[in-house]
């Protein structure tokens, strides 16, 4: 913060102390402005993370029989070695990775396409469609999952019924299809949200760039490909990072679908497994899972940022 010094150099030695005093006051002022953020951040973010890391390094020991007295002891990395060798956890990670590799590009492709279409549409439609595309994001995740669960249900769904009448026997919640049914829900929910971020970036492109392109004889497609997409690349990367984080934390749709489908196990996604483990009172193991998941998310997000940094400029 002291870097925000006035651009003028001190004109006389006598003025210096006074100025320093003022800078000192100003340098403390940032604390007051950041406190409303810092206090909850420490209380509800850093502290729980620290607590989880602490817990993940412990285990429960018991003396005096089955229902005897318990003590929590330091266990080093025992829980972590359990997590990284747990086939259920690894299967869950593999499942969400497969999910992400397919779903994220599809969703971002859609979002980009919609943003481009919206950007080229006439002003009146722009406003309407922006809201229409964004609407699914406004529906709470659980409600959206419940609604889709109804549409996928083998007994109640009007879609399944129609397809059956047409001679097509589709199982949306079957063991091979349910992952992609979930992907569909996630795509439906977040395409509009991502579209809005990309669209906003497009709006920031200066008009002069378009004019220059026009003078050079570029048509609509050419402008989209050579000007709009390269210039919104940072926004695309940003939505990519958000999507990677969201994918690894997949939880709401599987747990809602579990109520009607026989194909969602307790370890379907790593997040669901951590939840199941915590519900069974195995807090140290659940904490270790959460930490591993968080670290994996960090690594993936930063690897993605790095891989794209040269082109996106982020």
């Amino acid at each position: 913060m002291t870097a925000v010094a006035p651009p003028t150099t001190p004109s006389s030695p006598a003025a210096a102390p006074r100025r320093q005093g003022r800078t000192a006051v100003r340098s403390r002022a940032w604390i007051w402005f950041t406190l409303p953020f810092l206090v909850p951040f420490v209380l509800f973010y850093l502290l729980p993370i620290g607590y989880a890391i602490g817990q993940s390094l412990t285990k429960t020991e018991r003396t005096g029989g089955i229902f005897g007295e318990t003590t929590t002891t330091f266990a080093g990395l025992e829980q972590y070695s359990r997590v990284v060798t747990d086939p259920a956890f690894l299967n869950g990670v593999g499942r969400v990775l497969l999910f992400g590799v397919v779903q994220v590009p599809v969703m971002l492709g859609f979002a980009l396409l919609l943003a481009l279409l919206l950007d080229s549409a006439v002003a009146r439609l722009k406003r309407t469609f922006r809201i229409v595309y964004f609407l699914p994001y406004g529906i709470p995740g659980v409600i959206a999952a419940l609604m889709w669960a109804f549409l996928y249900s083998p007994q109640l769904s009007p879609i399944v019924g129609l397809l059956q009448d047409g001679g097509l026997d589709v199982e949306f919640l079957g063991s091979g299809t349910i992952l992609w049914s979930i992907a569909n829900v996630v795509t439906w929910t977040y395409t509009g949200y991502n579209m809005l971020i990309i669209f906003a970036a497009m709006q920031a492109i200066p008009q002069s760039v378009y004019e220059a392109a026009k003078v050079d004889g570029a048509g609509g497609l050419r402008t989209a490909w050579s000007i709009k997409i390269p210039l919104v690349l940072p926004a695309l990367v940003l939505t990519g990072v958000f999507s990677i984080i969201g994918t690894l934390q997949l939880f709401t749709e599987p747990i809602v679908f579990r109520a009607i489908s026989t194909n969602v196990t307790s370890s379907y996604t790593p997040n669901l497994l951590a939840y199941t483990t915590a519900s069974a009172n195995n807090y140290p193991l659940a904490a270790a899972m959460s930490v591993v998941l968080a670290v994996a998310t960090f690594i993936l997000s930063f690897a993605f940022l790095r891989a794209t940094s040269r082109r996106s400029g982020l």
Binding site: F150, S153, P154, L156, E171, G174, A259, I260, S261, T262
Partner: peptide, 8 residues
């Protein structure tokens, strides 16, 4: 393919 206590 029917979960217990489900609408299905």
């Amino acid at each position: 393919n029917l979960q217990g206590f489900s609408p299905d």
